[in-house]
Design a protein around this nucleic acid. Structure first.
Lengths: 256, 256
DNA sequence: TTTCAATGTGTTATTATGACACAATGATAT
DNA sequence: ATATCATTGTGTCATAATAACACATTGAAA
């Protein structure tokens, strides 16, 4: 099946496979070089970017749909994902983007389930940046990471969705496994602090931060220090997964 | 149009008016005689109860849909409502309830948009119990309040939705205007404390509670006391609406 | 060998919270 | 009229959590 045929099939008969009027958008967060990043797709034939998204299959749980989408874009499996908000403005429809896209692919179509209004559920994903192999989908020409503070122009309400995702992450930080999911297995205390500072977008006191995070008991200090750094070498830590998961449920119990 | 015709019309052509595969369910909380209550509907021709719910019109924001549903069941306008979770188990479909319902109404129908799977968005509403005039919808034979701890058997996953709504209310209590929305305009400190105790399902220290809630500055003590009570008459309070709304945004800033 | 920026650790003041006690009130009972 | 007593109004103290802050240690680079 050629690309054009695939697209035509999707627009004509996708509703036999997918639920109507409802979609999923993923905000995939990563952390790299002291920057909080999100994975975005470049919409084909447009100079705008989009959140990785997709539709829910008829027999599929919405959470599964989100994980399927994540897997396709990143290659990653078994990742923390959580719905955070539903976006339902009546005018958040794909009509313009869709018709431009179809026109450029060389398809004319009077009607399609894809032209209808979609209500979208936003999902937060926390992934290990270094493990991701970004893959564009059929509607996109590129898939890339962006610093959360240098977001390109985005389609529809995707900028709003992204903003809300970040707000939710900041507000519910104690219920998100940011440390375990965004950092490599071994990391230093300054790494962990920088992660929190970047997400919260404010400085934290080094000593108080260490006291509180160590106080939760979720960390195991290793008998290794980071190699090849100027100045005093910091210890490496890893998470005590059992205690980590336990602490998450009750919300990490500390204010930053 | 007879009732049967209305139902037939809804099953046959409702999808021209409403979005497909997505619905809204409302958890309407009220507070009366020291009990936290929810408003439920009795499904016609079944001995099960259901959350007030409905569908989203094609040009309508989901929040509006929730408010429309609330208005129809309670007569109330301009009420605090907030989405809290999306329920999307593939098996949460209305097939059985629907066919039983149609059979009893005397309609036979091979296919309908109503038979499809629905993903439902849960909304929390906080209403003043005494102002509500419960009204059943066309699918229901009754509309009544139930104590949150004596819930009757419910259809589908509605018990789960209710449970999640309560959890969310407890967890996010500082972000919900329970005092302003669930109590009458004038109330006593014991009233307010009882409300919090009932929602959280645990006792609170009377003196610490007063210190904290007064500390937020959201209360105005009136120069009146409650009349006709045995023992010492408590003062009446009302909310300082401006400060109340301000405090809500940043989350009431106290632990209970 | 010295420098120096970053790390590891401890102390103190302030604030928030939890536990608790006693005086004041006013309808009800006598 | 007076006493009773459950409930309200208010204050104190011990403890825990947080914010603010200082100094010794390390080890690569100069």
């Amino acid at each position: 099946m050629t690309f054009e045929e695939q697209i035509r099939e999707h627009y004509l008969n996708g509703h036999e496979q997918y639920l109507r009027n409802i979609s999923v958008d993923c905000i995939i967060f990563g952390f790299h070089e002291d920057e909080l990043k999100v994975l975005l797709l470049e919409a084909k034939y447009a100079r705008q970017w989009a959140l990785p998204g997709g539709f829910i299959m008829k027999g599929e749980h919405m959470d599964e749909a989100a994980k399927r989408i994540l897997k396709h874009r990143t290659g990653l499996d078994d990742i923390f994902m959580q719905q955070f908000h539903v976006f339902s403005q009546p005018d958040r429809s794909d009509k313009k983007v869709n018709s431009q896209f179809l026109k450029n692919v060389g398809i004319e179509m009077a009607d399609s389930w894809m032209f209808e209004r979609f209500i979208s559920v936003g999902y937060t994903a926390l992934v290990n940046f270094t493990r991701v192999k970004p893959v564009p989908d059929s509607f996109s020409s590129a898939c890339d990471w962006f610093n959360i503070h240098s977001i390109p122009e985005m389609i529809l309400d995707h900028e709003l969705i992204l903003k809300k995702a970040l707000e939710n992450l900041q507000l519910q930080l104690n219920y998100h496994p940011v440390g375990y999911n965004l950092l490599p297995a071994k990391f230093t205390m300054p790494d962990l602090q920088k992660l929190y500072e970047t997400i919260l977008d404010r400085k934290l006191d080094r000593r108080n931060f260490q006291r509180k995070i160590v106080g939760t008991g979720i960390l195991q200090r290793l008998n290794e220090t980071k190699k090849g750094v100027a100045h005093k070498a910091p210890y490496l830590y890893k998470f005590d997964l059992r205690k980590y998961q336990q602490a998450l449920k009750s919300g990490m119990g500390f204010e930053l």
